[in-house]
């Protein structure tokens, strides 16, 4: 009963995603997350490459861009110089190594460039902002099968704390 809403379905959803368009994605997820999160609002602009980088740091096909954009905007607000300089360096590395912008490279090339900078304050700041933005985001909890705060529902004593029966 509980399983229908959990990431066991993730694989299914991901396969589903690959063969379907945005509207079907909205349909498939509409029972899981509030509808207003699915509305296709215009996203604020991020500098070139930053969203691509964010999606490479924590790639989740089933999470929409806006959930990456929001924490990255917050980071730019807090540490504009760090982000600008770090992104500049990344784009320069991309051009030097491949003659192209970071976001135009293929995945393996992007991951290799990011691995080179994973110890830098810029990369760590992006990673940290997304870690909170994606995994400490109540709107996204259901996509991972995490049910969050329970005391207001009387805990899990009557909500499946010992319902496992497949062993």
């Amino acid at each position: 009963m509980h399983d229908s809403a959990r990431p066991q379905g993730t694989l299914n959803r991901r396969r589903f995603l690959s063969i379907s368009g945005q509207s079907l994605l909205a349909l498939s997820l509409s029972q899981l997350i509030p509808v207003n999160l699915l509305a296709e609002e215009r996203l604020p602009d991020l500098p070139d490459g930053l969203l691509r980088m964010g999606r490479d740091v924590f790639p989740h096909d089933f999470i929409s861009d806006r959930h990456y954009v929001q924490p990255l905007l917050g980071l730019m607000d807090e540490q504009p110089a760090l982000v600008a300089r770090g992104l500049d360096d990344l784009q320069q590395q991309a051009r030097q190594a491949h003659g192209s912008t970071f976001e135009q490279l293929d995945e393996a090339e992007r991951v290799a460039l990011l691995t080179d900078i994973e110890n830098t304050p810029f990369f760590k700041a992006v990673r940290s902002s997304l870690m909170f933005g994606l995994y400490d985001n109540k709107a996204l909890f259901p996509l991972f099968g995490y049910e969050g705060s329970s005391w207001e529902y009387g805990g899990y004593v009557n909500r499946g704390f010992n319902d496992l029966n497949w062993l």
Binding site: F58, H60, R127, Y135, D136, G145, Y146
Partner: peptide, 27 residues
Amino acid sequence: LPFLSAFLDPTPKGWGKQFTSRMEKYN
């Protein structure tokens, strides 16, 4: 989920596809 993301791999290597594929197995 929030703490798992912080402690699953706190080293500089804690990102990328292996990390997220594990997070997607949270439940």
